[in-house]
Design a protein around this nucleic acid. Structure first.
Lengths: 357, 357
DNA sequence: TTTAGCACTCTCGACCCGAAAGTGCTAACC
DNA sequence: GGTTAGCACTTTCGGGTCGAGAGTGCTAAA
């Protein structure tokens, strides 16, 4: 029997089991499916079908004489053949739009908001991710003069990001001196990555600015901070507490592992980068995730693009029995909104990952 | 028998019980105290003393025939009479200094780092807090010109904080126009709280800037965001996962309550503001905290001042049986370092809250 | 005042048991 | 041949019992 060859009834049963299990979190017995309108057969028939589905790897039993639970393969099949788009209620849509329309210049904040929204709507943990820009370089420096002892340094990076930092100095600085200093910065440091800003270069810079050499150190520090912030990428996690509502995380040890994972940037990043060559919407079910700690959880996320380039991702982490249909719909909606906000194209990537036909 | 009238032996016993309980997390029996070098009497004697300490409210039994556990009053006595400063190892000191000396212009980041450090060293949850500045007003606007469609708006607030935001516009903007626009901003919006920036004022502003009126909306949004960020204060929590190592939080329900609390800014803020009239170092044991969810936890924090004004706080949340001596020493050390970094005075408040003599 | 001894109390884990739930299989049915 | 009813079998789960272990309180002696 070929893999696609699931009979209509088997599909229905599998779907019903997945959805019931997502809802109740317990193994599903043959009788409890009888309430399903679409299934007109008896519990015995269902039992037979279930036994077959089990031998095909879509279901499993925690123990003899418990109901069935979908396997990872079962969820995978369910997700791949998701047809029924989850229809968001108008209230949800309204809230999403209201929040997103608060146009906030910065992508960072948009992503943060998205993560919060996701966690609130789905009752799972919301994730926002900003990738590390391989090697950030400043393409232009600007400044704003505050008073003789302080200034704001504005750095425009090659990818268009703008970062600022405040610099304090013992020196007594005039507006003109500041402009001159910035001009030198623009001459000498533009286009350099952090590792290219070497000691000789710094010394040289100090020489060029003459009396203002005391400014060099704090400014360099400021630049360095901005660069490393950009280089290292960022994560934000919201609503971990939701996870505790699911018996899957009742085991403290397991939950602790999860928390540790969520506190560790590198681990989280590894979850994302792995699959990012593929589609924009990724569904990683259980052990499909790179990390052991995630083998009982699922991670659904969607890349956010600007001008075709990946500039971030938002997603959801939750138990394997996740309401995929709902989460996927929500992510699509959200990414649509975000793309609208940050301008340019919404770089496709299919609303639903459809089965490999 | 007056409260201070604890005999030397009773003190010793109480201290030994507190410390053993902090270490092992289990009720302490009379026999297990025999190993303590300083106690030369027999277990029976200790039992008698323990019975008295219990009737005085310093100890309690989870049930007959279990060992004793310190009550809140017991911890309070212990903390109040803490004598032996916890001596930090040179390694710890070195790490603290190394991290703090990375002088980062911004208080925010210092606090964040402090919170991370605390959580790492204590194995409890680290907290960093920045209070809401009652009513933030901008005392000066500055700008940096990026290109004809974008600029960086620099806002200097009345309390000295500097915030920046990037503003985009459809307009084609020249440097001169920008300067003029900023001048108008300085004229019309300085010294106003967010609630004082009313619609008539905005309309008036639009009129004053003539052709640039399209700039007004994004700029106002930017100002508003900065203000509300400043107004609402900020919290950062690190290392919640540590808490799971303590059996006190093995109960999922309890831990969940804790997590919820930690995700809720207002609640956390209420924990701090309550006691802030008193000393700089605050120890809230169990139900001394304002919130029910904290009645089984302790919260130790220290205010951070600049020029005598409270500009933040760092602290630790953990089980009631917290290693107070250690945490307090760490906080003192840290606050010393922070005060050094952000300049000016270290505004006293005593290293240790000594008993009310 | 301190100590030794002993009876008493309480928790905790192991074990057992019956109820409940769900299956697999067989035999009858359409 | 596919579907259904019925029944024996298996496994979990909650409750109850029991004995070991730990620690106390009290009493009597030093």
């Amino acid at each position: 029997m070929s893999e696609q060859g699931l009979s209509e009834r088997k599909r229905l049963i599998l779907k019903a089991i997945v959805e019931a299990h997502v809802l109740y979190g317990e193994p599903i017995g043959s009788k409890s499916l009888l309430s399903n309108q679409q299934l007109t057969c008896s519990s015995a028939t269902i039992r037979n079908e279930m036994a077959e589905l089990e031998s095909m790897g879509y279901l499993e039993q925690p123990h003899t004489s418990a109901g069935r639970v979908p396997t990872e393969l079962g969820y995978r099949f369910y997700v791949d053949s998701l047809a029924k788009q989850y229809r968001m209620t108008s209230m949800e849509l309204e809230q999403i739009n209201r929040t997103l329309q608060r146009k906030m210049g910065e992508l960072d904040r948009i992503l943060e908001d998205a993560s919060r929204l996701l966690s609130r709507f789905t009752n799972y943990a919301g994730i926002a991710f900003k990738p590390s820009t391989a090697q950030a370089t400043v393409s232009r420096f600007e400044s704003a003069y505050l008073d003789e002892h302080s200034l704001v340094l504005v750095m425009v990076f090659s990818d268009g990001t703008v970062k600022t930092g405040t610099v304090y100095t013992e020196l007594s600085l005039s507006q003109e001196e500041l402009s001159a200093f910035i001009a030198v910065l623009n001459q000498q440091l533009c286009g350099l990555t952090s590792s290219e800003i070497t000691l000789p270069r710094i010394v040289n810079l100090e020489r060029s600015v003459g009396l203002l050499s005391a400014l060099v150190h704090p400014v360099i520090t400021c630049i360095y901070n901005a660069m490393s912030e950009l280089d290292s990428g960022a994560f934000r996690v919201d609503g971990v507490n939701h996870l505790l509502e699911y018996p899957e995380y009742a085991d403290v040890g397991q939950f602790k592992e999860m928390l540790n994972l969520l506190e560790n940037k590198e681990d989280l990043a590894s979850l994302i980068s792995d699959g990012s060559e593929g589609r924009d919407l990724q569904v990683h079910i259980g052990s499909e995730n790179a990390l052991d700690a995630m083998s009982n959880s699922s991670f659904v996320y969607r890349l956010v693009r600007r001008n075709g380039q990946v500039v971030g991702a938002v997603g959801v982490i939750g138990p394997r029995r996740m309401d995929y249909s709902r989460v996927i719909a929500l992510l699509n909606q959200l990414s649509l909104g975000i793309s609208g906000l940050i301008g340019s194209d919404e770089a496709g990537g299919g609303a639903l990952p459809d089965g490999k036909k």
